[in-house]
Write a protein that binds this DNA or RNA. Structure first.
Lengths: 119, 119
DNA sequence: CAGTATCCATCTTGATACTG
DNA sequence: CAGTATCAAGATGGATACTG
């Protein structure tokens, strides 16, 4: 950063986008950021519409990136908890910024839609 | 932000992700952030691998979101220039953060890969 | 030059059923 | 409970050819 730009390959942000790419990933992170840890079934309930298959897949991807920690408790019935890793916490500023920007953006779109109701 | 979280619907960041979703969008923005304006063909040249169809589509999407301004000069041969709008500039802090985070992330992955060469 | 039009390949997501 | 397996649907991107 500092003096500006062009310090290296232009593609570094792409990997960030990739980490966050996945229809439900931000929602998953959102909930995990608000709770120390959550069980698989709790996430299912908090994210209406997601299927087991997809929730599993996206959690595994986040785990592979080191963003989320998966802990299996060898009990019967099985219990698995997910939590943000310390490293995952470093994403927080970005997600906060995106949240704020997204809010503004939605507001803007709503205004535009009002200005030209029929098109 | 201020006190923390849960101010509203959890989905505001999703729209940000959506604006940036598209395989080449970040690259397009990256180049447009570095130049006051660029022609279609210049972007094509700066982004090896992209096709006309896809470049057109992603530019239109960015235009629809108000991020990019498209200006047609009625000349022969036709000239079309693209530039970041003032509104689009507001994305800059996010993209800078993502750039920095992405760099760190890639570094981390490289280290991990070294630690466990075979898997 | 700056696109469109078509068609195809791929990748991601979803529906549903089954299991340690 | 927390998944996996299988199959189908949808969205996204790519190749190629053509045009105002």
């Amino acid at each position: 950063m500092s003096s500006g730009h062009r310090t290296d390959s232009p593609c570094s942000a792409v990997s960030t986008l990739q980490v966050l790419s996945g229809k439900w990933k931000w929602l998953i992170l959102y909930h995990l950021f608000q709770h120390p840890s959550l069980r698989f079934s709790e996430l299912m309930r908090m994210i209406p519409g997601i299927t087991q298959r997809v929730l599993t897949k996206q959690l595994r991807e986040l785990e592979d990136e080191g963003i989320v920690q998966r802990t299996v408790y060898p009990e019967v019935p099985p219990r698995v908890e997910y939590a943000i890793t310390p490293y995952g916490q470093s994403l927080r500023p970005i997600l906060d910024l995106m949240h704020a920007w997204g809010l503004e953006h939605l507001r803007r779109k709503a205004e535009r839609a009002q200005q030209e109701p029929q098109r």
